[in-house]
Design a binder for these strands. Structure first.
Lengths: 190, 190
DNA sequence: ATTGTTACGGACCGTTCGGTCAATAATTAG
DNA sequence: CTAATTATTGACCGAACGGTCCGTAACAAT
């Protein structure tokens, strides 16, 4: 029983996520966030408490959407190598064809907030493990990974590193040819 | 003919680099830099112009020292696989035994400054290529990479991604076991 | 229609930011 | 010794920061 809000919290959160993703925690001023969401500070503060609350909510949103989407790609049918190739291929396409050079929000958060903020570190750690699990599951559909747990875990850890590294290189502005080469080699090594 | 400075610019720059490395560009306030160097603002501004000048000088310093050191590890005698293993091993040791969770300054700079600052982007791009070149050179000492340029370049690009990714994971606070597994697998795949 | 509650909008707050100024100290060239 | 030059220091600056307050508007319950 009160005045209803005039915006959709989910849309606002999406805009907040995009802003932090592009600019980082400190780089995203409240002014930017107001502009991105079309909302006034007060509405944002009432909904999220403070700036850090917005950031953590943004990271969670990333987990619910982007991470989930990556896991979905890995869960599509086909042998392990194809699944990994699709994951890396989608990433490269988004960067090269789509011009998306934002990188991986988890990596960005790891670098600019994880060292100083425990909540971020925990959240990011949890989500990175989700990625790892999804990669392991994709590997597990093909030999020799289906029967060799050690090999599967090791390969997944390695691929996870290559995946994150590539996304850093994407944000760094590395040339498409190099990105494609690295992605192909990652998939071919499975 | 004038009053001589009372500090060593190289030492100051090292302290500045460490500060930016730990805290990032925006996270490192001038106050923090003053404390780290033991110098007053004015001395720093006279030497570097402005904060961005300090940052770029810090990135260059990283190139002259840390990147060069990594290249030196890769240039030590032995077959390609051993060279790569030493590179990854040194990184993991520093993180796990040495407690150095700062990650790779090039990666950090890629994420927090490269997208918005062209000078940083160019500098980081140049240095990342140095890393790539050093990895290629290390691969080139062993078969099949010695005679297969394509394979060498592809493998180097992939290993570079894995290397950077691992350093992001180090900064993210991932557990030592996972880091070690990923590093071993990276070296074993050569 | 009145009351209680929540949302909105914008003025406002203290703090911290990067950066500058001006006074003083230390040196060298002549 | 004097003049010229540079280094050091701490006070100082306007702007932007994250965050809050408060008057007004819009709803639900009674």
């Amino acid at each position: 029983m009160a005045r209803p809000r005039e915006f959709e919290p989910e849309e606002a959160l999406q805009a907040i996520k995009d802003t932090f993703w592009r600019l980082g925690y400190e780089g995203a001023s409240m002014q930017e966030i107001e502009a991105a969401t079309g909302l006034k500070k007060q509405s944002l503060y009432r909904l999220f408490g403070d700036k850090r609350g917005m950031y953590l909510a943004a990271v969670e949103h990333y987990g619910r959407h982007e991470v989930t989407e990556a896991a979905a790609i890995l869960a599509q049918p086909g042998p392990a190598r194809d699944r990994i190739a699709r994951l890396f291929g989608a990433m490269i396409d988004a960067a090269v064809k789509g011009g998306d050079r934002r990188g991986c929000f988890l990596c960005n958060a790891s670098i600019d907030q994880a060292p100083s903020d425990e909540a971020t570190r925990k959240l990011v750690g949890y989500m990175m493990n989700e990625v790892r699990g999804a990669i392991e599951a994709a590997l597990a559909v093909s030999a020799p990974y289906d029967k060799d747990r050690k090999a599967r875990e090791a390969r997944a850890a390695h691929l996870m590193a290559a995946y994150f590294g590539l996304r850093v290189m994407i944000r760094a502005g590395m040339p498409p040819a190099l990105l494609k080469t690295a992605a192909k080699e990652a998939a071919a090594s499975v």
